[in-house]
Amino acid sequence: MKSYVARRLARAVLLLFAVSVLCFLLTRLAPGSFFDEIRLNPQISPQTIAALQARYGLDEPLPLRYGRWARSVARGDFGFSIAYNTPVAQLMWAPAKHTLLLGGVAMLLCWLISIPLAVWSAAYERSWFDRGVSALTSLFISIPEIVLALALLAFAMRSHALPVGGMTSVGFDELTAWGKAVDIARHMLAPVVILVLVGTPVIVRHLRASVAEVLHAPFVEAARGCGIGGARLLFRHVLPAAANPAISLFGLSLAALLSGSLLVEVVTGWPGLGPLILDATLARDLDVVVAAAMLGAAMMIVGNFAADLLLLAADPRIRTGSPDAG
């Protein structure tokens, strides 16, 4: 077990290194630079721009720049944002927390809604409930996220039922702790509803399929033939056997925790990583872009690792290191 974790960690570090090199190269090779806009300004001389570029080391060869960036990562700064004139880690800390809050709440709700829906429709296959769920999930899967977001925003604006934009109201600081929580929750409602409407159908579909498959498995029929039915059949025989695909899916939603809500954040004005990354990309504030990509990769690794550990705990058949594991 220990060597397994160590191996996974080593692989994670290697992967992050590869991602960092790739991101670094690709962003640096992309056309455009942070100083493009000032370059158009006739009042700023080419010498000034050259001096600025030299100051941020933009004129050095790529390996050198990567080395400097790597040292800054080691310091915990994760690069330097030219636009904000501050280390990237400091800049991203608060938005990352906001994104995690939004993503975490949305993910929790998605799973809390999906599991009963999926189990219920699989257990009552072809019932009206099942058909209804199937129709609704098809509908929401086929509507693009952005359309859903805009529709909900339009509704929120017209009905004045929900605050739109930001995560706090004016005068937030004067509120009590409870008042603050309510205020944030109200601001979070629109993006959370969009994320739940987008995320739930996919999870319901996958869960329903795996539960339905197990319900038709010969061993479940054999259990029925012994008189095992109802809750005991569902909870002792069916759900544990259907858990593996669900756990893998859970790992994926964990992996998407930081990256899944970016578009919705931009559209609804949630002060998370989404608006920051969009601005940084447009402004060619490259270290911020690379750090965001690294964060996404790290989350992917964490999600996969968590799923593997859960699978291991749920199913002793998957042994670490055995060649036929799977």
Binding site: A217, P218, F219, A222, A223, G225, C226, G227, H237, P240, A241, D315, P316, R317
Partner: peptide, 19 residues
């Protein structure tokens, strides 16, 4: 009545709970 009538299936591997 279940105990009196029992079944044995063709594919034993899938006829038992894998866990």
């Amino acid at each position: 009545f279940r105990p009196a009538i029992q079944m044995v299936f063709q594919d034993a591997a899938t006829a038992m709970n894998p866990s």
